[in-house]
Amino acid sequence: MGSDNINNVLIYAEDKSFIQWVRSDFSTDNEKWEALKNGDETKAAIHEAIDLVTALSFDNEKMSQQRKSKLFDRIESSIDAPKVKTLPKRNTRRLLSLIATAAVALLLVTVFWPRNSITNITTQFAEIQKFNLPDASEIILNAGSELSYDKKNYKNERSLELDGEAFFNVEKGQKFTVNTPSGSVEVLGTSFNVYSRNETFKVVCETGKVLVSNKDFSSSVTLFPGESCALINNKMVKGKRTFKSDDWIDGIYHYDGVKLSDVIEELERQFDIKIITDQVDTDVLYSGFFNRKKLQEALESVFWTLKIKFEIEDDSKVVIHN
């Protein structure tokens, strides 16, 4: 792309009305930008500017340290002093600024724009997805969860980022790592379940052997079939599996001495509802299960045992009270 086009891209990307148009997912009526987007001489620059605005709007706070390191390495290795013609002094600073901004923007777009090698999979409430990784490993992602991996580099590094819950059936091969906000799990070939929501981090090994570590790797445990562990006060504590960790795949959710607030969050995820809890102590402990097949039966399974009454006001709202 020539310097004139670079200049146009950045002029577009700095325009407040253009930024608003892009961030509204083009739902804001704007004849000017629509016309330029479809114009033969301007559409290329407009699309580059759209990429730039989208990339610079990316939420860097949610980036994992692994992805930050890859980005910094890429920027460092991509810096190369460009050869430019001598320009009038008043324009030199402007063009250098444009080139620098465009270079960084191009790197950001390359790393974060959906056309890159990072594959992101997200499940909504009341949704479960089953899919295979490039090595044929199988993953079942529970509702309200997010998972990502580098498809291009997957053969060299079988590493994933998870926020939520997933069951993994991993094909044998080199090290397979699941990173979460609270800790990580490393295996070679096995099946296991990972639950990582808010500050709760739990892992259950079904077959094979897994190594589980907290976020700063100051505490680790090795699990064998039938064993589980949980993060308690930043320490991995091992225990025995009390029920099959993949029962949730068939719609059964088990609990053993869990705060009612955690059970309610799972009910909300599985049925895409809002439960109003103002009149109930949600710190009480619950032991039991529910099935996600029918909302009425699931609510009865949880609340009747605790002598809590509930009312389904519509398809998306439930009120509970004593």
Rank of each mutant, 00 (worst) to 15 (best):
M1W: 01
A13Q: 05
A13F: 08
E14R: 11
S17R: 13
I19C: 14
K32G: 06
G39A: 07
K43W: 08
S57F: 06
E61F: 15
M63V: 12
R74C: 11
I75C: 07
A81P: 10
P82I: 05
V84L: 13
K89M: 07
N91H: 10
L96Q: 05
A100P: 01
T101I: 04
V111H: 11
W113T: 13
R115K: 15
S117I: 06
T119W: 01
T122D: 12
Q129G: 06
F131S: 13
D135V: 08
S137Y: 14
E138C: 15
L147A: 14
E157K: 14
E165F: 08
F168L: 12
E171G: 09
F176A: 05
F176I: 09
T180G: 03
S182G: 05
V187W: 01
S191M: 04
N193P: 06
L211Y: 05
F224G: 08
G226H: 03
K235Y: 07
K235D: 06
K238G: 09
K238C: 12
S245A: 10
W248K: 05
H254A: 07
D262C: 00
V263G: 11
I273Q: 00
Q279S: 11
V280G: 04
L295F: 12
E297K: 11
E313Y: 09
D315C: 02
V319M: 10
